[in-house]
Design a binder for these strands. Sequence first.
DNA 1: AGAATTATTATGTCAGACATATTTTCTATT
DNA 2: AATAGAAAATATGTCTGACATAATAATTCT
Lengths: 256, 256
Amino acid sequence: MDVAKAENPQSSAQVAREVARMILTGVWREGTTLPREIELASRFDVSRTSIREALSLLKAKGLIASKQKAGTHVRARFDWNMLDEELLNWTLSALPTQEFAKQILEVRRIVEPEACAICAARGTDEDFARIERAYRGMDAAGMDRVAYAEPDLQFHRGILIATGNDFLIAFGATVAAALRMSFDLSSTNPGAPRKSLPYHRTVLDEIWARNPDGARQAMHKLMDLTEQNIVTAMSRQKKKDTKDTEDENARTRRAR
Amino acid sequence: MDVAKAENPQSSAQVAREVARMILTGVWREGTTLPREIELASRFDVSRTSIREALSLLKAKGLIASKQKAGTHVRARFDWNMLDEELLNWTLSALPTQEFAKQILEVRRIVEPEACAICAARGTDEDFARIERAYRGMDAAGMDRVAYAEPDLQFHRGILIATGNDFLIAFGATVAAALRMSFDLSSTNPGAPRKSLPYHRTVLDEIWARNPDGARQAMHKLMDLTEQNIVTAMSRQKKKDTKDTEDENARTRRAR
DNA sequence: AGAATTATTATGTCAGACATATTTTCTATT
DNA sequence: AATAGAAAATATGTCTGACATAATAATTCT
């Protein structure tokens, strides 16, 4: 009966999300020409305005490009701005693969220890105090993984901010996505996050001591731990997925 | 008489560029509420549609955020996605400061040597061949700085691509901006780019040799050279700017 | 067969209207 | 007078329909 006589709220954001998902999951591959805007409008049951607003967002993130008459096509993967926060989140919910985890950890390993060293070398006491506050927040959260997540991000962001380098600060989006992934995975092992607390303490101590080498090394250790948690959580997940599939198959076999 | 009865071509992109410039140069500071869309439309003499399209682009890059009734405001610097290619280019043309150069070089120094090591460790021969082709292109360009620029970018991009890491690949946008900056600065010293050729050769040799440590070190040397070129070019530029200002002042003095 | 012209079409821009969500203002109550 | 609640105001969000523009596809002519 179509009760929704009201206009579609946040339609453009929803469409953007959905189109992004279809691109990320390969429904629309690189080089593919998307359906025309009017077609998309009828398909998503929103106005062309909302479609255009959505596509405009994806254009800004390098996912697509448009040309008059020729249509809108999916750009090459190389042009996608994977360091964009929204795009990272979309990827995270569409394809939270092991490969994705591996890659994001690889860049963190490259960037964060160095950022940490720079932080120790030239951060201000104010910067350090902000990181210290974040640490206290983590400590106060105890075993509550939900409450732990936010100050954890603030801790890592604080270090990036302390570098005073706008590009390293922008890297915070990537760290945020990585932590969100870790959080999602920690559901199978709720105690894991808390275990990182002493590692954070060491990082912070080295920073306060204005010891770049020590800070770098401490952050590296933290990265090691993070990797360990992710790997074990994902193998567990994989095992569970496999089991689920087997169960599913068994059910299917029984059904026929 | 207003001959321009035709509609405004590419108005949204132009508006986006201009609004971005005003934000980047601090005309509209962080937290500032922008004029309402209708006001902007009349100010830029385009339709509200084009304004919205432009703002949508800036929203995607984290520069602004909107809320119904409350209006559109400039987000905190921390939220700006400085690793976005367009945003980098806008910054480059609006504020090509020494600070900007310093920061972009600092991240390159962190990322590129490591990427280079990864490239040497696990890049494919195809990857290497692509980088080799780029090198040949640089060599063929000789002293022509314009012809040199494109393969130079392909060289660095090739290394990032060879890592197979989507996030490192996305970092290519930052490298592109950095090289464009170097190019702009090389006008005062046209011979400088070519001098980097042997350094590139060394990088490539270490990669072919699948020697990660050597590749890392070679890339580090290349970064050193790049920094040197930028510093000398900028101090020269600065001197020139100062002189220009003095000349300007002298002319003003004479005029009154 | 190939070049030049015309027709087609998907995106880009414009205009005006209404919906929605806040904020602001006003009113009534304690 | 202070405060809570109701009503008005308003900037963004969405919808509709139209025309402009540029690139492609089809057609005509040489």
